[in-house]
Simulated scan of single mutants.
Amino acid sequence: MQPEVKARAVELVRAIGAWPSGERDAAMARVGALGLEPALVDQAGPLRPGGTEAALEVVDAQYGGILADAASVLVVCRQWVRRADGTVVAGGTTVDVRLSRAHPRWTVTALHPAAPGAPAAAPGEAARRVLAAGPAIELPPAAAADVRSGEVHTSVLEALLELARKHRLAVSVVRSGHPLKVFGTDRPSDHPRGRAVDVWRIDGHAVVDPATPRQLVESVMRAAAAAGSYNVGGPLLLSGGTAGQFFSDATHRDHVHMGFRT
């Protein structure tokens, strides 16, 4: 694990997505003060809605990929923006922050904010149930918008509902805000196709926390496989299952990944 990589991504997202009254347009100066390229602000998209001031909460910072000299950090956030008329609007997004190794600190090379798409006219039954699942299935803003869009496969939604019968699941990423390809490869990721979901916290325990019981993470990974996931990743390399069904690598030490074929 390289915590400095996540810290670098998070400080940039905070510098762009939160500002005191009247200082929205000072984002480039704030980014420059971090030793990063001010023009990154132009890539922030939904992280910079109009408003007189904004507060931002980082829900989770998850690896989208980590290599020796390059990384993707998915910064999942909620945001509250005060408009000129005084009303406060709640929102948020997920930003795929791309970084490269540099001295003395990693540097940010690009931002790819989530683009969930418009809500479907009539969400399916599984989507409605997931959206109504409340504390059993916690969805950050971009993930909730993905479900509302109708672009998430029913297999993913039904698996979440099945796992939520026994566990409280905090979702980090579903479809948008994730790299289009498996990081460092040319293989398409299941996420942008609406065929995968990542869970970063189970029953109040962060997957990345060394104090989280191994049995808890293992039980969810095996339950995901039983619910139809052909590709279950996490911090544990489990035995059993079909060939290649379980995997573990540096990218998946901080979440449980569930991928589906259809």
Rank of each mutant, 00 (worst) to 15 (best):
Q2D: 15
Q2R: 15
E4G: 05
E4D: 15
E4S: 14
A7Y: 06
A9C: 12
A9Q: 00
A15I: 03
A18D: 01
W19Q: 04
S21Y: 12
R24P: 11
R24M: 11
D25W: 12
A26I: 00
A27N: 04
A27R: 12
M28L: 04
V31L: 13
V31I: 10
G35Y: 09
G35T: 03
G35L: 03
L36H: 04
E37N: 14
P38Q: 08
A39N: 11
Q43P: 01
A44S: 14
L47W: 06
R48F: 01
G51C: 06
A55R: 14
V59Q: 11
A61P: 12
A61L: 08
Q62W: 05
Q62H: 01
Q62F: 03
Y63M: 02
G65T: 12
A70T: 13
A70N: 07
V75W: 07
C77W: 07
C77H: 15
R78D: 09
W80N: 14
W80A: 15
V81A: 08
V81F: 00
R82E: 14
R82W: 06
A84Y: 04
D85S: 09
D85V: 09
G86L: 09
T87I: 09
T87C: 00
V88P: 11
V89R: 02
V89G: 05
G91E: 07
T94D: 04
D96Y: 00
A102E: 06
H103E: 15
H103Q: 13
H103W: 12
P104G: 05
P104E: 02
T109A: 08
A110N: 12
L111I: 03
H112T: 13
A115R: 14
A115V: 14
P116A: 09
G117S: 10
A118W: 07
P123M: 00
P123N: 03
E125A: 15
E125I: 06
A126N: 04
R128W: 04
A133C: 12
I137Q: 08
A144K: 02
A144N: 06
D146T: 01
V147S: 05
R148W: 10
R148M: 13
S149P: 00
S149K: 00
H153W: 03
S155I: 03
S155T: 11
S155G: 00
V156T: 04
E158A: 05
E158N: 13
A159D: 08
A164F: 02
A164I: 04
R168P: 01
L169G: 03
A170W: 11
V171I: 15
V174Q: 05
V174C: 14
H178I: 02
G184R: 07
D186E: 14
R187S: 12
R187Y: 10
D190W: 10
P192L: 02
P192K: 08
P192Y: 02
R193E: 13
V197F: 11
W200D: 14
I202F: 05
D203G: 09
D203T: 02
G204D: 10
H205Y: 12
H205R: 15
A206M: 01
A206I: 06
V208Y: 08
V208H: 11
P210Q: 08
T212H: 13
R214D: 15
Q215E: 15
V217W: 07
S219C: 00
V220Q: 06
M221R: 05
R222H: 01
A226Y: 02
A226F: 05
Y230M: 08
V232M: 07
G233H: 11
G234V: 01
L237E: 13
L238V: 09
G244V: 06
F246S: 00
R253I: 07
R253S: 12
H255L: 12
V256D: 04
M258Y: 07
R261H: 11
